[in-house]
Every structure is written in structure tokens, then in C-alpha cells.
């Protein structure tokens, strides 16, 4: 399964970025291997409007199964829901810990 996470740096040791649309990077992680399969620089980080829609659209285009963030705005929810992508929220922790939580079903699902 592929999951999409908002991160401060492009590494498994990075912390989750609590601002989904304004995260510095997004990573796509293969939850089976626990490896980063793709890292994406967030070019919309300084846009003042619609960053959530852009970030959600990137996730959609990456064809991921789920998205993990700290919290999601209403527009992000709307887009991801329409795409049938599962959403999980997590405390701000390292990506490694979050992947472990994901595997152990410890993340809370949104909706």
C-alpha cells in the first residue's frame, strides 16, 4: 500500500509537518517495505489560497491509498474523500514512528 505524508524534511527521520497544505515536502511511503518511494517538493507552500486543494491533488495524482497528516482542512477532506483516499491523523512524530503506528492500526482514521 502507498501512503502520502506531509513532512518537514524528505527522510524517515523527519517529523510530520502539522500543516498539510503548507508542508515543505510530501513523501510517498510503501507501507510494506517502510521505504520512501517518492519525495515531492511542495511548490505551492507560499500560495495564500488553495494550498490544501493543490496538496490533495498531488496525493490524488500519486495514486496513493491513504494520506497521513496532523489535521486536514475542509477542502482537503472534500477532495480526498471524492478520490476515495483514506485519511489518517497523527500526532507530530517521526515518520518511522508514524509508519509503525500505521502498521499497528494505531492511527485515527478521519470519517
Amino acid at each position: 500500500m502507498k501512503t502520502f505524508i506531509s513532512v518537514k524534511e524528505s527522510s524517515l527521520d523527519s517529523m510530520l509537518d502539522e500543516r498539510f497544505g503548507r508542508a515543505a515536502y510530501f513523501i510517498v511511503v510503501d507501507t510494506d517495505s517502510g521505504e520512501i518511494v517518492k519525495s515531492i517538493n511542495n511548490e505551492y507552500i507560499n500560495d495564500a489560497h488553495g494550498v490544501g486543494i493543490k496538496a490533495a491533488s498531488i496525493a490524488v495524482n500519486e495514486n496513493v491509498d491513504s494520506v497521513i497528516g496532523h489535521n486536514f482542512g475542509p477542502k482537503v477532506l472534500e477532495v480526498l474523500k471524492a478520490a476515495g483516499i483514506k485519511m489518517y491523523t497523527s500526532e507530530v512524530k517521526t515518520i518511522k514512528d508514524i509508519i509503525d503506528d500505521y502498521k499497528n492500526n494505531k492511527l485515527s482514521a478521519t470519517l
Partner: peptide
């Protein structure tokens, strides 16, 4: 959606959705 400068559109191919955020 890619070209919109105001991020007012989201289009999802898989589930065939065309979403307009008309406040943007």
C-alpha cells in the same frame, strides 16, 4: 485544474470528479 492559477479546481480521473471551489 493544473493550469488554474487560483487553485479553484480539483479533478480526479479515477473517480470521475470535477470539483469547483467557487470561493476561489
Amino acid at each position: 485544474a493544473n493550469k488554474c492559477q487560483f487553485s479553484a479546481l480539483a479533478v480526479i480521473e479515477k473517480t470521475k470528479k470535477f470539483m469547483l471551489f467557487d470561493d476561489l
